[in-house]
Design a protein around this nucleic acid. Structure first.
Lengths: 218, 218
DNA sequence: CCTAAACGGAGGCGAGGTCTCAAGTTCCAT
DNA sequence: ATGGAACTTGAGACCTCGCCTCCGTTTAGG
């Protein structure tokens, strides 16, 4: 039951090769099917026995943490980059857009960001570094008179939750669909605008719609 | 294993009393905790043995159908009522608002509307009567020049899914919160508007926010 | 070539649900 | 009042499904 965390001495060559395979398999499966995939599935995808997975990672949470801590830091990075934009509104829009895109591309990331339970500790902590940055982005855009002033700090994460759920439903069928609804939301957030911003992409066709609604689990 | 559907001859007095109790208990539990509550829980809440539940309803799906067919028809009713409004935009807004409110008040209804699997057949069918009505509402509001013209037919149900997920997260903590985000979305849908519509209600406070994010399951 | 390290995957375990059944109880038509 | 059909019960059979362990076997590499 000895788990070799980082600095324990280099792994044997085959062990290291398998560790990498496991991580890759987990990344792929979590992205496509969410954090609920079983470790048996991950092991199978990695071409390895379950036992091998448990030799490397104490339990499922440890594996999730190993994968998503960095991934969530990436979202935080997007926020910091957005704070450097010259135009506060453009920065805010960029952050909303990028963070939704990341969620649309990776179901596991979406779940790590919006639900508790799975992938505890470090991920939760990392996630909480995003909040202050998002709030700062919001305040800046409000101060410049471009973002509606009555928006509160906690409205932002809920908008992300909301758009994330659309991204979730349409990910497999039309991965960029969420941008349409994001455009609508942003138009609703702008203080002043003449005509509606044209919706990007195309609406779903009947089959895509049916597929999006059918494939949902939760 | 004989299941007495409607016209089988009146139930015995005690049996009828229990049937009503079961339905009431199921309604309450589904509304509060979603369609995943176990029938054991429903039976307990009804003050009845599980066996009694299975005497009345072939299986869980039958119970769900019995409850939600009517409930979904109610949503369709709101759509029809909205079609009679003089102002097309007002009608569209009313429908969006009412249907979100119903979803916010009843988690089971939200699940019946937005996911497949549980509560199959008749519910799915009933749901599909809503779509054409929603589309009609949309077309009418577009024709009057008040709703953005580039909205497609299937954008509407996805907006409902999206707002429903917020309603879901905040239901227990601030049941009317979703109206804020609905207001934003509607502002984004309007062709012309001067200032942003003031957001109704209040933003979440930190505890409410934490609770909303923590309690999520899916 | 020898040994510590790593591997595999059947299966133990527990949670959590659906549904059944045999034994006891209640209603109500006669 | 009474006989018997209808009804009730809830323990538990049974299933699914995921996490994780265990130990006989294989393998890297000094």
């Amino acid at each position: 039951m000895t788990i070799h965390t980082v600095s324990d001495r280099p792994l044997r060559a085959d062990a290291e090769r398998n560790r990498v395979r496991i991580l890759a398999a987990a990344r792929e499966l979590f992205a496509a099917r969410g954090l609920d995939v079983s470790l048996d599935d991950v092991a199978a995808q990695a071409g390895v026995g379950v036992g091998t997975v448990y030799r490397r990672f104490a339990d499922k949470d440890a594996l999730i943490e190993a994968l998503f801590e960095a991934r969530i830091a990436e979202v935080a990075g997007e926020a910091r980059k957005a704070l450097e934009a010259d135009d506060p509104w453009a920065g805010f829009v960029a952050f909303m857009s990028r963070s939704c895109a990341l969620q649309a591309a990776d179901r596991g990331l979406k779940e790590a960001l919006t639900t508790r339970g799975r992938g505890r500790e470090r991920v939760a902590q990392a996630r909480e570094t995003i909040a202050p940055l998002a709030i700062q982005l919001m305040r800046r855009a409000q101060a410049s008179g471009q973002l509606r002033a009555d928006l509160g700090p906690f409205d932002v994460p809920l908008m992300q939750l909301m758009l994330g759920s659309v991204a979730d439903a349409t990910r497999e069928v039309a991965p960029e669909y969420f941008e349409r609804l994001l455009t609508i939301v942003l138009d609703g957030l702008a203080v002043r605008r003449e005509a509606p911003t044209p919706l990007p992409g195309t609406a779903l066709d009947p089959e895509q719609f049916a597929a999006a609604m059918t494939r949902r689990r939760c």
